[in-house]
Structures are given as structure tokens and as C-alpha cells.
Simulated assay, not measured.
Amino acid sequence: MEMIALFDAQCSLCQNTKRLFQKLDIGKKVTWMSLQEYERKGFSPQFKAVDLRREIHVINPDGKVLIGYWAVRRLLLLSPITCLFGLVLHLPFVHLIGNRVYRLIAKNRYKLNKRKCEDNNCSLFEE
């Protein structure tokens, strides 16, 4: 099994994140699939639709699922350009801050992308 990254194709921040990581993925180790395609193809119902829209999900080749901060941290290790930053995120206690920062960005993605999100999809989970 290959590494699969699930992203929200209706969110401009998510699309930009995907494009950036694809450029960095020199070895083409990750297959990117929109969560909309994932749902259409009827893959395992192990994820709730609402969760897939809140945070990026990465499915490792061994089947382990990484979500949000943990997924981004894993993706950063795949590129020589971002590997050092990915290693820093593995230091003890960094996850305490990193996870909060990721969730803050994800929660406020509409506010951060108002000009790029004309159809309000990014505000889907704005609280």
C-alpha cells in the first residue's frame, strides 16, 4: 500500500497545501486524493465526513492514520527541503504547541482565505 493524503478539494488552503507538498515530494511517495473522491469511491467508512473536512488525513503504507498536525509532520519528513523542520517537530513537547497551531489554522481557514473562498466552503466548520 502507498501513502495516501486526503485533503478537502473545496478548500483553497487545502488545495494550496497539497500543491506545495506535491512539489516538495521529489520521490513521489504520496498519492493525493480529495476527500470527495475518497467518499465517492466508497472507501472504508473509518472516517467521519466531518473529520475529513476538519483536518488533513494521511494513511501510511502500514495502514496507520495520521491526522492534522501529525500528518503534516510526517509529510515534512519526505522532502530534503523540509526534512529538518519535520525533525524539529519530532522533538519532545513540540507537539504541544504544533498541534494547537495546526488546529487554530484549520479552524480559522475561512478567515485566513476569505478572498480565495468565494463559495464559503472553508467556513463549513467555522465556530
Rank of each mutant, 00 (worst) to 15 (best):
residue 5 A to F: 00
residue 12 S to F: 12
residue 17 T to H: 03
residue 74 R to C: 11
residue 19 R to M: 05
residue 107 K to D: 08
residue 95 H to I: 14
residue 53 R to F: 11
residue 13 L to W: 03
residue 88 V to Y: 09
residue 51 D to Q: 12
residue 67 I to D: 00
residue 75 L to F: 02
residue 27 G to I: 15
residue 104 L to M: 14
residue 15 Q to I: 10
residue 5 A to Q: 00
residue 38 Y to E: 05
residue 39 E to C: 13
residue 57 H to G: 01
residue 24 L to N: 03
residue 76 L to W: 02
residue 6 L to V: 03
residue 127 E to V: 14
residue 118 E to Q: 13
residue 74 R to A: 10
residue 71 A to L: 00
residue 29 K to F: 07
residue 118 E to R: 13
residue 98 G to Y: 09
residue 46 Q to I: 11
residue 76 L to R: 01
residue 54 R to F: 11
residue 44 S to P: 13
residue 70 W to P: 04
residue 18 K to P: 01
residue 108 N to M: 11
residue 115 R to G: 12
residue 70 W to R: 12
residue 116 K to Y: 10
residue 38 Y to P: 03
residue 69 Y to R: 06
residue 85 F to R: 10
residue 57 H to M: 07
residue 82 T to P: 02
residue 65 V to P: 01
residue 95 H to K: 13
residue 44 S to F: 08
residue 97 I to E: 09
residue 108 N to H: 13
residue 54 R to N: 09
residue 121 N to H: 10
residue 113 N to C: 15
residue 51 D to S: 12
residue 93 F to T: 11
residue 106 A to R: 07
residue 19 R to H: 08
residue 50 V to D: 12
residue 36 Q to T: 07
residue 119 D to C: 08
residue 59 I to L: 04
residue 40 R to A: 15
residue 71 A to F: 00
residue 25 D to S: 02
residue 34 S to L: 04
residue 22 Q to G: 04
residue 119 D to P: 09
residue 48 K to V: 08
residue 91 L to N: 11
residue 32 W to N: 02
residue 39 E to Q: 15
residue 77 L to F: 08
residue 55 E to T: 08
residue 39 E to M: 13
residue 124 L to H: 14
residue 127 E to M: 10
residue 80 P to E: 05
residue 53 R to Y: 10
residue 104 L to Q: 14
residue 42 G to C: 06
residue 69 Y to N: 03
residue 115 R to W: 12
residue 52 L to H: 04
residue 9 A to W: 01
